[in-house]
Simulated assay, not measured.
Amino acid sequence: MGEEPRLIATDIDGTLLRDDRTLSPHTAEVLARLSARGTPVVLVTGRPVRWLKMVYEELAEPLPAICANGAVVYDPVADEVLRADPLAPQLLAEVARRLRAEVPEVSFAVEIVDSRQMRHETHYPLRWDADHDAIRAVETPEELLAAPAVKLLARSAEHDPDAFVALVAAVLEGLAEATHSSYSGLVEISAAGVTKAAGLAWYCARLGIDSRDVLAFGDMPNDVPMLTWAGRGVAVANAHHAVLAIADEVTAANSADGVATYLEKIFGMG
């Protein structure tokens, strides 16, 4: 990578946002200055499309987003999904079958309609948008798995997060991708080959930007593929140990505007 990257890719939660899930005015201003000078900034997140609105409200302008861990590429200006890579119903059913056999107490939810809607089992614990109009419980496994899903969510209260994702990855090896982005017993499952790196690579190819010219920021295991793919992968200081182990550099924590501080240094914006 040269002195100045051609594209900035950043995770949202735990990386760009503070611990209270708000964007600091300082970070918002740095991102606006980068966009004004013509450097593309892309949000690369495990979030569904419907969770972007709260971030866009704090930005000077909405930024393109790669959502659902790479399964959805979203243009907020046109409110258009440019690409989606869902798990087909038949594949969902096989994944669920294997996981129920291995982890009987597992509960499932699916992100459908390009992650604009969610369906979940009645006993699946909701953390964020339980009363959102797009969220609905289903009565049967057949109904849950009837539509293509850009992400299957599997929860187990009885497992350590890192141990649970390792178990799920082993059970689904060659069938689907498994990762996690929280410190609860939640595993996020995507179609085989679908990662943040794959979604970002597709988006960069449209712009004619090579991976070596991309600067990426992250904090959790679902960011590892993106950080290793990018020319420079930077972890925030609060990152998971798996991210700190592979990062090219470490910046300040999310609570201390680590992304903005690093960008100001790289682009001479102080």
Results as ranks from 00 to 15, higher is better:
D248G: 02
C67A: 12
A88I: 04
D213S: 11
R212N: 12
P5R: 10
G268E: 01
D248N: 07
N254M: 07
L59P: 04
P148W: 08
E80F: 11
V150R: 07
V194S: 12
R136A: 14
D85N: 14
D160V: 03
R136H: 13
G70A: 06
M1L: 11
V150E: 05
L23W: 04
A68P: 05
R136S: 14
G270V: 13
L200T: 13
G185Q: 14
Y203R: 12
A36Y: 02
R6C: 05
G258F: 02
S184V: 15
R18D: 03
E139L: 12
A71G: 04
K53R: 14
P161W: 07
S184I: 15
V113G: 10
L126I: 12
A101W: 00
L87Q: 07
I246C: 05
H240D: 00
D85E: 14
V138K: 08
R127S: 11
R119F: 00
V138D: 05
A78V: 00
P104D: 08
A252E: 15
A101T: 00
S184C: 05
A176P: 10
E4D: 08
A201M: 07
E177H: 13
T179H: 08
T10F: 02
E188F: 10
A230M: 06
E4G: 11
G2I: 09
